[in-house]
């Protein structure tokens, strides 16, 4: 049988039938949500998660996972269990928002009124 040239096989001589010891729960620690800022002035953006045993290592892993190419200036990490999120099932709480034109600049149109006024009052102006 052809073996690869993996040094762990050729030099360390790992047994091919080494014992299977399953990982215990929490072996891979908790998860942290990662927020990445590309450059000063940008918002931090959620980019994913890392598994880590504590905040410091979460930051270290985040730098490797989400900051190893391109530009970065800052990273935040937050324990997943500390994030309190709304429920997608409750998304109807946002439903009427696009209708609230009185909150938008576009909800205030005056040109028609001005033009009408000008037309009716030509002599005065």
């Amino acid at each position: 049988m052809i073996k690869s040239l993996d040094p762990r096989i050729t030099r360390e001589q790992i047994e091919l039938n080494n014992p299977i010891n399953p990982l215990a729960d929490m072996d891979q620690w908790e998860t942290y949500e990662v927020f990445h800022q590309k450059k000063r002035g940008d918002q931090h953006e959620h980019v994913g998660i890392v598994h880590a045993p504590n905040l410091e290592m979460a930051l270290l892993f985040s730098k490797e996972q989400f900051g190893r190419r391109g530009i970065s200036v800052n990273i935040w990490v937050v324990k997943t269990s500390n994030v309190f999120a709304s429920d997608y099932d409750d998304a109807d709480i946002f439903e009427t928002v696009p209708d609230k034109q009185y909150r938008e600049a576009g909800g205030y149109k005056v040109m028609e009124m001005i033009n009408k006024y000008k037309k009716e009052n030509k002599k005065i102006i």
Binding site: D25, M26, D27, W29, E30, T31, E33, H46, G48, I49, P53, N54, M57, T80, S81, V83, A85
Partner: peptide, 14 residues
């Protein structure tokens, strides 16, 4: 060695 006693698993959000 790094595992903290009081930690508990939560499914990631996104």
């Amino acid at each position: 060695a790094l595992l903290q006693k009081d930690s508990s698993y939560v499914t990631p959000l996104a």
